[in-house]
Amino acid sequence: MNHIERTPDPDKRTLRRQILTVREGLPGDVVRETGRTLAARALELPELARAGTVAAYVSVGSEPGTIALLDALRARGVRVLLPVLLPDNDLDWGAYDGEGSLARVRRGGRMTLFEPSGAPLGPDAVTDADVVLLPGLAVDTHGTRLGRGGGSYDRVLARLDRAGARPALVVLLYDTEVLEHVPTEPHDRPVHAAVTPSGVRRFG
């Protein structure tokens, strides 16, 4: 892939397809073990150690697993917020109270999601978070995150900016998903760190 400053969105789509193809070929035991390892790595982050509220998400399919991390944070007494996808692709938020508090939902023709079943807290609830754990498909050496392309987290990051909130932004990935270059667009906001099974990568 060419190393250029600005790359048209079709290149993002190609990269997404490539990464998703690799993920879909992962055995279930690798996905589960990655989730346990990621939880241990992430819990070493000073940002999470001092966090009172963490906005996170429930992994689905072959995404790096998050349930072990969510449960560990909750056991520490951390308030964990999880997203609820709205019809316009924006995100509302609800509290995580254990796996039993999750509802399995299907949004139109999209993948099945696991969302908090309690009372919605509103889209602005994320501005209370000390750390935001972002889903992603890749990150590059500058901290540019490749998302799935739905724009939900672009809205979240814009909301944080408008509120003057400055949480730590952390993406959870497989080791092979830390790349030299990810196509960049003007609205992209870099993350502060990526957690993979082999460790933590920080970005300036």
Rank of each mutant, 00 (worst) to 15 (best):
E24P: 04
I67A: 12
R74A: 15
S117G: 14
A51R: 04
T37N: 05
A163Q: 14
H181V: 13
R202L: 09
N2Q: 15
V31P: 00
P135W: 01
T112M: 12
P27I: 08
T53K: 04
G143F: 07
G147V: 10
Y96N: 02
V131L: 03
T141G: 11
L113T: 07
G94I: 09
V84S: 07
E185P: 01
E47T: 08
A125V: 04
R201Q: 14
A163K: 14
L134V: 02
D130M: 08
E44V: 00
R202A: 11
D140Q: 06
G150I: 09
D92S: 12
A51E: 05
P197I: 09
E115P: 04
S59Q: 01
E44P: 01
V182I: 05
E33R: 14
R107Y: 13
A165E: 07
H142E: 15
H187E: 14
V54K: 06
A68H: 10
A49I: 02
A55S: 12
T7H: 14
V195W: 00
A55H: 06
A39E: 12
L102V: 01
R13H: 11
T34I: 03
A49D: 12
P10S: 03
G28T: 05
T66Y: 10
L48D: 00
D29R: 12
L48H: 02
R202K: 11
T21Q: 15
G100S: 10
R50C: 07
G65H: 04
V191D: 03
G108S: 13
G122P: 11
D92Q: 12
I67G: 02
A129G: 07
D124K: 11
E99G: 11
A158F: 10
V182P: 01
V182D: 04
V191P: 03
E115Y: 08
E180H: 13
R110W: 14
V195K: 01
I4N: 12
P190M: 09
A68V: 08
P46D: 01
V22F: 10
L73K: 13
Y96L: 04
G122C: 09
V84Y: 06
R162C: 06
P83W: 05
I4P: 02
G109K: 13
G109E: 15
A56F: 02
E44R: 13
V84M: 14
V132H: 03
G151L: 05
E99H: 06
L102G: 02
V182F: 05
D92I: 07
L82E: 08
G149I: 11
L157S: 02
G108I: 04
G52F: 01
A168N: 06
G65L: 03
G199T: 10
G94P: 12
A163H: 15
L173R: 10
D154Q: 08
V139I: 13
G28H: 05
P8A: 12
R32E: 15
P123E: 15
L121N: 00
V178S: 05
P183N: 07
S117I: 08
